[in-house]
């Protein structure tokens, strides 16, 4: 018994060291930095919670927090819908289904920066694909990246494209776990295709939907890569997510305030994660 505990300790130790030194310690370090005035070329000065008071009065920060929230909500909603459709398709049996499943993974598999570059060019006002199609069908051109509404929509679409495959995969696994007998029973009871989806499929896969929802929400709240590439936070700072806002302060050399913003995001993400783990039935799943 004692020996097993000792063995377990040594097996988990390497993971523990990495996590401690490169995840936990840096977060504590960031918190420590956030308690200082830490700007390049200025003397370091301990300010306690000073940066946090500044944060609460910082209009631009709240604007970016608001943007991040609305962006996450819109993008996760769209992904759940598109992901459900794709999962339903990939769950049917048809020729080349394996290749189709692989194909559906591609937007998620490539680096997010590459996806972002592709969409950035699609959205280009003069010769982008989006306006080409729009002009051809309706004669209109949209200023995708130059207007705040257009930029918001562009980012939501690009982000949904990249992450829908992930949602689809998780939901597909849920669909595969629905007992076929339930469908047969519903058919006998006279339920049609759509009734079967809403009355049988959805209730059974609900736990999986929640898992996908929360994983994606936390991920969306941290959004950085695609905004950095596609809009750089513009126009006029309108699409600056909290991560990007923090990064911009790092770039300016203001590590104290940048860390304060990042710690705020950390607390939000962790609260969501905590609620998730409490809500999910991971205790039994784990063992």
């Amino acid at each position: 018994m004692n020996r097993e505990i000792r063995e377990a300790f040594f097996f988990i130790l390497p993971l523990g060291i990495f996590v401690l030194l490169l995840m936990l310690l840096p977060v504590i370090g960031s918190f420590w930095i956030s308690l200082w005035q830490d700007v390049s070329f200025l003397p370091r000065k301990f300010t306690g919670l000073g940066n946090y008071f500044r944060l609460f009065k910082d209009f631009q920060f709240w604007q970016s927090a608001g943007f991040t929230l609305i962006f996450s909500f819109a993008s996760v909603t769209l992904e759940m819908v598109a992901g459900t459709i794709i999962a339903l398709v990939l769950n049917e049996s048809f020729r080349f289904r394996g290749i189709m499943r692989g194909t559906a993974l591609l937007p998620w598999a490539i680096p997010s920066v590459i996806g972002a570059r592709i969409w950035q060019l699609i959205y280009r006002y003069d010769y982008g694909l989006a306006n080409y199609v729009l002009r051809g069908t309706s004669g209109l051109s949209v200023n995708w990246l130059g207007s705040s509404g257009g930029a918001f929509l562009s980012l939501v679409l690009a982000d949904s494209w990249r992450t829908t495959p992930f949602v689809a995969i998780i939901l597909l696994a849920g669909l595969q776990s629905v007992p076929q007998g339930l469908y047969e029973q519903a058919k006998i009871d006279g339920a049609n295709l759509f009734q079967r989806f809403f009355k049988v499929t959805l209730p059974v896969i609900k736990p999986v939907v929640i898992v996908a929802l929360i994983f994606r929400t936390i991920d969306a709240l941290r959004v950085f890569d695609i905004i950095y590439v596609i809009t750089g936070g513009g126009p006029g700072g309108f699409t600056t997510s909290v991560s990007l806002y923090s990064y911009k302060y790092f770039l300016l050399g203001d590590f104290g305030y940048g860390s304060t913003v990042s710690i705020f995001l950390f607390i939000i993400a962790f609260t969501v994660a905590f609620l998730y783990i409490r809500a999910g039935r991971f205790r039994e799943a784990a063992l």
């Binding site: 977060v27 950390f266 993400a269």
Partner: peptide, 12 residues
């Protein structure tokens, strides 16, 4: 679910 931005300042 760790946000990377929360450690990158310190790591830098």
């Amino acid at each position: 679910m760790f946000p990377q931005i929360s450690v990158v300042g310190y790591l830098y």
